[in-house]
Nucleic acid binder design. Structure first.
Lengths: 224, 224
DNA sequence: GTCTATAGCTTGATAGAC
DNA sequence: GTCTATCAAGCTATAGAC
């Protein structure tokens, strides 16, 4: 541990700015949040944002990068811990589980991060610079294990399955609250454990449905 | 038809502003786009934005509302045209097909609209005011038909299935391009017909996996 | 590493002539 | 319904003292 004094509230300025930025970017969007709002919430002076991160865009990149590293490490560890003959559900859980557990017990920071990622993943504006840069290497490792769990599947089907998975995952962890209203209160976006227990079989069955060997010949993918 | 002259390029100012706003909001976000950028692209004066729509937020709402009406009508018509014993795939297609066909043949406007909707659907910021307001009534009609196709399913499972469907659909029509890079060019986000042919069986299988009658008792939803 | 002060620009909104 | 002109407020970024 560094030269930290007694008080537990001594958070380095860099982290204070990152935390405040993450929270505010999650509530709205990159453009809706000013450096003034960020530094005000962080309790530091405006000029310190530029001193520590350079231009605003680099601060946004740093917000995405910070937890991406942790998430990538946890995902790789979970993938490597899988048995050689792991079923598809377990492979998917190695990818989604680390995000779930962090959102469940990581406090408001990880929930905010999930909302930022939902914006980044669903806009072509950020896709190449942020999603591809920070998440594609681990995605490739994940897809390699999916391939092993689905022998005979063609690559295109697996890629599109992954695409649907990302769509379902990002909107889930963003906790938008839409289903809460739509269901008249019977479902809660915040009940991530219940959603995750359904997401795994939903996605696994989806993968299997489009990765079957008979998906090649017919023009339309309807299935009995 | 109103008093339109001969030239086909005579688009009313209101529509010109909506078209420009839709295009620009799709490229970035609500906050990244200024009224000056919008009116400049529309080829009209700045003051006309406020004259026709009031504050900026109302313009955004109008962008979402315009095509929502058309989409809702087409979805309801497709749902009503379904046979009484329509399988789940056809019910899902009644919901997704109208968006697909518009994105395929509606020119850049519908593609831009899809990107706006992806932002709106994936952020809690817009959920209640826009998604719920403009899309939930038809979503309820859709869910009623899904229930008929899945006898014995409990409501919670159907709501969460719909939630995953929305996540997969919105990221699909947004055409972010991530899979293009991830797949090394083997898949193209713009190839909506190919994606849609996989999305239908993927989602239908997912619904069936979580809506089985035996999903109630066990704590975890893993399935052979 | 932190602070004050400020330059240079853009923003949404509107008043008022036509 | 459209135009010009403008206001007050906000923005990012930085220079320079400490």
């Amino acid at each position: 541990m560094p030269s930290a004094p007694a008080a537990a509230t001594t958070v380095p300025t860099r982290e204070r700015i990152l935390d405040a930025a993450e929270q505010l970017f999650a509530e709205a969007s990159y453009d809706a949040v000013s450096l003034r709002m960020i530094t005000r919430r962080a309790g530091v002076e405006l000029a310190l944002a530029n001193y520590h991160f350079g231009p605003k865009l680099e601060l946004f990149r740093a917000v995405v990068e910070r937890r991406a590293s942790d998430l990538n490490g946890a995902r790789l560890a979970a993938l490597e811990a899988l048995p050689a003959d792991a079923p598809l559900e377990q492979v998917i859980e190695a990818f989604s589980g680390p995000f779930l557990s962090r959102s469940l017990s990581g406090g408001p920071s990880w929930k905010a991060y999930a909302r930022v990622i939902a914006q980044v993943a669903n806009s072509q504006r950020w896709t190449s610079a942020l999603m591809t840069a920070y998440f594609d290497p681990v995605a490739q490792a994940f897809l390699a294990r999916v391939r092993e769990s689905l022998p005979g599947a063609c690559d295109e089907d697996i890629y599109w399955g992954f695409h649907f998975l990302i769509g379902a995952m990002t909107i889930t962890f963003a906790e938008t609250g839409r289903i809460d209203v739509l269901s008249g209160g019977r479902c809660a976006s915040s009940d991530l454990a219940a959603i995750h227990a359904r997401m795994l079989p939903f996605l696994a069955a989806g993968f299997r449905a489009i990765c079957g060997p008979k998906n090649e010949s017919p023009t339309r993918g309807s299935r009995a």
